[in-house]
């Protein structure tokens, strides 16, 4: 057992999970803010193909990779039920994203509106959250029965 004895076990998130989730959230917020700033900056005049433009792009990429690493660390250290719920959420999100990307190409040929690369990202994120909600509901039935 890698997790230390003495964790607060009143809920699904132990202190270690809370700590790791906070670290992941901090990286996500930082990456999102820099991403938004970079997008606005690159839409302006003169920054494209400039050293500052490259610096912003690389900084955004680095922050995103840091968020990814923090999430993997969170998953690896997580309580095993929490890990299962998250992995099921990831599986549903990934599967829905792939299905959307494959099938929507056909919908486009049938006249549906052309979407940007961000659309599958939204689908994946929504289904990731949905998968976790389903997992919580499935595995935490009767959770109030503490005795």
């Amino acid at each position: 057992m890698q997790r230390t004895i003495g964790v607060a076990c009143s809920g699904l998130l132990a202190p270690l999970d809370v700590r790791n989730l906070r670290i992941f959230s901090a990286w996500v917020v930082a990456a999102a803010l820099v991403f938004a700033g970079t997008l606005i900056a690159l839409d302006g005049e003169g920054l494209q193909h400039s050293p500052l433009g490259w610096l912003l792009v690389l900084t955004t990429t680095l922050l995103t990779v840091c968020a990814l690493v923090a999430y993997v660390r969170f998953i690896r250290a997580a309580d095993e039920l929490l890990r299962k719920i998250h992995l099921e959420g990831l599986a549903l999100g990934f599967g829905a994203g792939v299905a959307f990307m494959v099938c929507y190409r056909l919908f486009e040929r049938m006249g549906a509106r052309h979407l940007t690369i961000s659309a599958p990202l939204v689908v994946m994120t929504l289904f990731w959250a949905l998968g976790q909600a389903i997992g919580m509901r499935r595995y935490m039935a009767g959770a109030d029965d503490a005795r």
Binding site: M1, R3, T4, I5, G6, V7, A8, C9, S10, G11, L12, L13, A14, D17, D79, E80, L81, L82, Y139, M140, G142, A143, D145, A146
Partner: peptide, 12 residues
């Protein structure tokens, strides 16, 4: 607490 997992895990 003795096992180092969450209470929800024990319940599940």
């Amino acid at each position: 607490q003795r096992l180092g997992v969450s209470r929800q895990t024990i319940n599940a």
